[in-house]
Simulated assay, not measured.
Amino acid sequence: MTTFLTPQELADRTSAAVDAAVAAGRELGLAVTDPTVLHDVFSVVVHLAPSPVVARIPTVTPHSEELIALARRQQDELDVTRWLAGRGVPVIAPSPLVPPEPVQRDGFSMTLWPFVPQDRDKEPDYVANAESVADLHVAMRAYPGRLKFLSAAEPQFISESLARLDRHHILIGAAELDRARREWQILEPLVRSRTAFEARFPGAGLQPIHGDSPPANIFSGVDGDLYADFELVTLGPVEWDLAGLGPEHESAYNRGARRNGTRPLDEEVLGFVNAVGMLRVVATLTLAPQLPELTEYLEPALDQWQTMPFAGGMTS
């Protein structure tokens, strides 16, 4: 049986996240009298007004993710964005008013960022954004910190979700779930093992990458665009950052790569990352009880998945 949170339970979760952020901000010496929720989907994002600080509090997370693991990923994001900012890359970096580390409070783990006014009149240009991601990859290449291989794929989440979906018949049909499991048998070894991936794709190369569709995560600030939301920053092939975006965005990225002298996207690797990305979509269905609107939001991607080559055209 699948039980979805009620509107009141969703509102209570948001309220609890805001209360935790306010308390954490005050403990860190911030003046917080007028907290304002800016965004509330997978995370509650709240401006701790009048302080120029924004708290991002993940609220919709995999069932098995513990606060320690979440905080470790959050620290990677803080470290990478602070390093990029130090090299002059236009990025939303951690707030300078608090220590650059995750804060845990009342069962939540949050990160703190500067409040950046948004240019609400600017329409996102995702094609132009995709071209600029080639420049971001150049900037990230020299990052000296240690990042896990393809952690953004969240292989444990996929494996656990494909097992859990047997109990959520209203979320996915039996034939679709069977396809997902058979695809994962082929793709999982390449996601979990850097050695296996490099043997299968010897020319791809690995480097620090954004991890979460950077063309869709460029913030239009009043003073210019800023790379944002590095929550899934990881070590992987550059193709991962273009997964699921299609030929127009891939061509735009390749224009950027030619301009800065780096390699274009590899078609075989694109097939692999697109297939893994779709299995992450299937896995995300298990989060729908925490966020009921997800089922409608994911439906177009699931329909597209049915038209794609099995396992990205790869064989076992």
Results as ranks from 00 to 15, higher is better:
Val138Ser: 03
Arg200Ser: 07
Glu101Arg: 08
Leu30Lys: 10
Pro189Gln: 07
Met314Pro: 02
Ala180Thr: 00
Thr284Gly: 08
Asp166Thr: 09
Lys148Cys: 05
Thr111Gly: 06
Thr234Arg: 11
Thr61Val: 14
Ala24Arg: 12
Phe310Thr: 01
Leu245Met: 13
Ser151Ile: 11
Leu147Asn: 11
His63Phe: 10
Pro90Arg: 08
Gly86Gln: 02
Ala21Arg: 04
Ala23Ile: 07
Glu231Gly: 13
Arg182Phe: 01
Pro208Thr: 05
Ser43Val: 09
Asp106Phe: 08
Pro52Tyr: 02
Tyr253Phe: 15
Arg13Asp: 12
Leu97Ala: 14
Leu38Ser: 00
Asp76Gln: 15
Pro50Asp: 03
Leu291Arg: 15
Glu239Tyr: 02
Asp223Lys: 11
Gln8Met: 14
Ala71Ser: 15
Leu48Val: 02
Ala288Ser: 04
Pro124Phe: 11
Pro264Ala: 01
Arg120Ile: 15
Leu287Pro: 01
Pro35Asp: 02
Leu187Arg: 01
Arg263Tyr: 10
Asp166Arg: 02
Phe219Ala: 01
Gln306Gly: 01
Met308Arg: 13
Glu248Lys: 10
Ala163Lys: 09
Met110Gln: 02
Ala301Asn: 14
Pro35Lys: 05
Gly107Thr: 10
Asp135Ala: 11
Ala311Asp: 03
Glu123Ser: 14
Asp225Trp: 15
Leu187Gly: 11
Lys122Asp: 10
Leu112Gly: 10
Leu5Met: 14
Glu296Phe: 08
Arg82Leu: 08
Met1Lys: 03
Met110Leu: 07
Glu268Gln: 13
Met110His: 05
Ile170Lys: 04
Pro289Trp: 04
Ala49Val: 12
Leu279Trp: 01
Leu279Val: 01
Gly236Asn: 11
